[in-house]
């Protein structure tokens, strides 16, 4: 199997969500001497773009997006081991720190966001559920995150989202990280009120939002948050 074929097959494996095949082909690519960054740029990233585009156009469905994200993540795990720290960072669009806010343990929605962000080429650090505001900030520093993404399904956890932003300001770190929000009781108005940088209604919106934040001229601490709500905009 030549290098070109490996890249083509790997791209297809990710699109099909075949994580076992994706790992095999990633190892094969490394054995053939392909530069990991080349594999990411010529196989993984195009695959994720294709699946993401299909999803946006309604030609692919959420379960397909999820398995593609899983396959991409499995492949990236193999490839990133081969990269230097600098190249590893370059292979990703950005790092998103993701967690369910303190006081809440509902994580299915958060896990969907993780899968979709991975499928869109983001490195996602999942902090899990019931994450305290300070823990978000400490992890963001440790992981050199670009974006802190916090969700909650219950209103009693909402004040902790505000607390996190206030804590960032008090620590002089508000301009270090974008802060984005999601979850059932979270609204664009709340996002604006507490000074977060963006809001997404669902996993697809979260990916759109993160793509905008890392690819635009935005700086953390936006005066007006970016509101992604595919439901409203259609």
């Amino acid at each position: 199997m030549d290098k070109e074929q490996v890249l083509k097959d790997l791209c297809e494996a990710v699109i099909e969500g075949d994580d076992v095949k994706a790992v095999e082909l990633s190892n094969k690519a490394v054995e053939l001497g392909l530069a990991p960054l080349t594999v990411v740029k010529e196989a993984i990233q195009p695959a994720m773009d294709i699946v993401g585009d299909r999803f946006q156009e309604g030609e692919a469905f959420l379960p397909e997006l999820i398995v593609a994200g899983d396959a991409a993540t499995a492949s990236l795990d193999v490839l990133l081991e081969q990269l230097s720290g600098e190249d590893s960072a370059a292979a990703k669009k950005g790092t998103v720190l993701l967690g369910v806010m303190f006081g809440d343990n509902h994580d299915i929605g958060k896990n969907l966001v993780q899968a979709v962000l991975s499928a869109n080429g983001f490195k996602v650090i999942d902090l899990g559920v019931n994450v305290a505001p300070k823990a978000f900030i400490e992890a963001a520093a440790k992981e050199n995150a670009d974006i802190i993404a916090s969700s909650t399904l219950i209103t009693t956890s909402l004040p902790y989202q505000r607390e996190m932003i206030e804590l960032l300001k008090a620590m002089g770190k508000r301009e270090d990280y974008f802060v984005i929000l999601g979850g059932g009781p979270v609204t664009p108005e709340w996002t604006q009120k507490i000074g977060a940088d963006g809001y997404g209604r669902d996993a697809k919106d979260a990916a759109n939002l993160c793509n905008k934040l890392v690819s635009g001229d935005y700086k953390p601490g936006l005066d007006e948050p970016i509101i992604e709500n595919a439901l409203k905009s259609k």
């Binding site: 099909e16 469905f61 959420l62 379960p63």
Partner: peptide, 23 residues
């Protein structure tokens, strides 16, 4: 299950038999 996932089961069956198995 696929219907509840807002997925077209006919399309999924053609493209991703693994997902049908998961469902």
């Amino acid at each position: 299950v696929l219907f509840a996932q807002a997925a077209d089961s006919a399309a999924i069956s053609r493209r991703s038999p693994r997902l049908v198995d998961v469902a």
